[in-house]
Amino acid sequence: MRFLIIIPAHNEEENLPFTLDSLQQQSFKDFRTVVVNDGSTDGTEDVIRKYTDHDSRFATVNLQKSAHQPGSKVVNAFKNGLKTQNINEFDVICKFDADIILPENYLETVETAFKDHSRYGLVGGLLYVEKDGQWIYEGNSNKHHVRGPMKAYRKECFVQMGGVRETLGWDNIDSILLTNLGWKEIVLPELHVKLIKVKGTDYTIRPADYYGRYFYFLGLNRFLAYIASSKEAAKSRSISFFFDIIKAYETCKKEKLELKISKDEQKVINGQRWKMLKKKWLKM
């Protein structure tokens, strides 16, 4: 199988070499990597050139800086990189971040999983972060969900679900849509991917606004959005946090901000959320 790897990068001169070195050190060699330089103002472009000048498997795309909002920015950069390639020449489409370190057997193990299981549509490992000199499991998501920094899609699955959406919540939307189409999302826990920096630290959006917008762009109806908001407020032990999230959600609805999912896809997402709610809370 042949891999196409797209890596969006904005001001990643310190982290990107670790990511690209880990790709060069892979036991599996049949891949092409496109690094999308998204308006970097540091030495990211120079870092990329060191690889593109000496390794034909590496290419680059330079973009003007886009607005730094969670979700849409990174997917916009990803799509710009994807447009430069003929995906019919590849079997696996990867979206990797510019601040991860892959184990040497990452691509090889993912390829084996795809070859051995024809209905595997999305495969990845687990994220680990450094704390007190030790690499520990990040724990920001359940161990059955492939996180955004290390997505590997079977091409047929990627095409069938219409690719990834340029919106907040894209890395949960993909999971729901591909599962609805009969594909499987698989986490390989033996693959430990090191995340060099903590996600979300450079977003300017307030947490309450983030969750409100996230629930809106995920396509949740009002009932499910309010339930999800109450869960986040409970974690923070703050009633005001609940109302702040709701305010952000309702503002999006009032402004009728464009969703990147269809009406039918909204029904699928809400149906899946309702099914999870009944199973976890109502024991149905």
Rank of each mutant, 00 (worst) to 15 (best):
M1F: 13
I5H: 05
I6L: 03
I7S: 02
P17K: 15
F18H: 02
S22W: 13
L23R: 01
Q26F: 10
R32T: 12
T33P: 01
T33A: 02
T33Y: 00
V35D: 02
V36F: 11
V36Q: 02
G43F: 08
V47A: 09
I48S: 13
Y51K: 13
R57E: 03
F58S: 00
T60Y: 10
T60E: 08
V61K: 13
N62R: 00
N62Y: 00
L63A: 05
L63E: 01
S66L: 05
G71E: 13
S72F: 03
V74F: 08
A77R: 10
F78I: 04
N80W: 00
G81L: 05
Q85W: 08
N86D: 14
N88Y: 09
D91K: 11
I93K: 01
K95I: 03
K95F: 01
D97V: 13
D97P: 08
A98V: 00
A98T: 02
I100R: 05
L102P: 10
Y106M: 12
H117N: 07
S118M: 00
R119E: 03
Y120D: 09
G125F: 00
L127Y: 05
V129P: 10
K131C: 08
D132R: 14
N140C: 04
H145L: 06
G148A: 15
K151T: 06
A152G: 08
E156H: 10
C157S: 03
G162D: 06
R165N: 09
T167V: 14
W170A: 11
W170E: 14
I173S: 09
D174Y: 15
S175W: 15
I176M: 05
I176P: 00
L177R: 06
G182Y: 10
I186P: 01
P189D: 08
P189Q: 14
L191K: 04
H192K: 15
H192L: 12
V193W: 15
K194V: 09
L195S: 10
K197F: 13
K199M: 11
T204F: 09
R206K: 14
D209R: 15
D209P: 15
G219S: 11
L224G: 07
L224Y: 03
E232Q: 14
E232D: 06
A233F: 08
S236F: 09
I239Y: 13
F241G: 06
E258I: 14
K260Q: 02
S262Q: 15
N270F: 10
M276Y: 06
K279R: 06
